[in-house]
Write a protein that binds this DNA or RNA. Structure first.
Lengths: 138, 138
DNA sequence: CTGTGTGCAAAGCATTTGCAAAATA
DNA sequence: TATTTTGCAAATGCTTTGCACACAG
């Protein structure tokens, strides 16, 4: 995790323990947590950290393109330290957010370019369904 | 617009002038307005209507599958009376939300099915870029 | 040392809710 | 007439902000 160190130095930002912990946690996890979830998790190791710091740090990390924000359709945002464009799938039953991996939608952007007069810069794909655990439990 | 009349009758819901106006307005417009935008627009013809009624009506229309909610990544929701699954494109400069028409992403859902163990029920596609008006104005 | 970041509490905003009055079927 | 819906205001919940103190560089 040297990358973040250099990026922060580059921008004359301070890499505080809180910032490092939030990024490291997001990197280590595939659950796409909300700010509140991150806060509750890190409270154990950083009991004095406030929710406001989590929000401020997330905003900073997004500006540095180290984290992306997901809008799955809940009342809050989810965060993902994998900033590559990749689709997500949300369980309509338990609310879990998963990556869809190994897919290749590179051609999608090209397709869209031919249907619109926008300059297309990026995209977000959200799929909705029922996860395997929720399917079992019925 | 007989459809809405029958659907409301079916569910023993009352088709009030406010509800009808909100649906008719959404049907007539391609701008994917927010609740506030709808409210401001209809205030002219329905000066006593409240924002709360707009929200309540939108919720009802969504439950009836007459309207879909869009999560373009702003701090509020947008609404679309075209409930067919279709991609949207958002101008990062002016915030405009457009439909992408004539596209066919039917195969997309099938692709995803092969990459996930979810039952895939629906999906939302959001593209981001710069619209032609904003491109000109530079 | 100096300026940036943290933590707290308060503020902001979109959305929801409770309830009495009004309107629909 | 019996419910449902409206409109108002207050409440809610997520996120942001202001500010004094603490801390990283």
């Amino acid at each position: 995790m040297n990358k973040i160190n250099d990026i922060f130095k580059d921008k004359n930002l301070k890499l505080t323990p809180q910032r490092y912990a939030i990024y490291k946690f997001l990197k280590s996890v595939k659950t796409h947590p909300s700010a509140e979830m991150i806060y509750n998790e890190l409270k154990q190791d950083y009991p004095t950290m406030s929710l406001a710091t989590v929000y401020k740090t997330l905003k900073t990390l997004i500006e540095l393109n180290l984290v992306q924000e997901l809008n799955v359709g809940e009342d809050n945002f989810r965060y993902d330290a994998n900033v590559d464009i990749h689709p997500h799938i949300i369980c309509l039953n338990c609310g879990k957010v998963d990556d869809i991996e190994n897919t290749n939608f590179d051609n999608l952007k090209k397709d869209v370019l031919s249907y619109t007069d926008y300059d297309v810069l990026s995209y977000k794909l959200y799929f909705y369904g029922i996860c395997s655990e929720c399917k079992k439990g019925r």
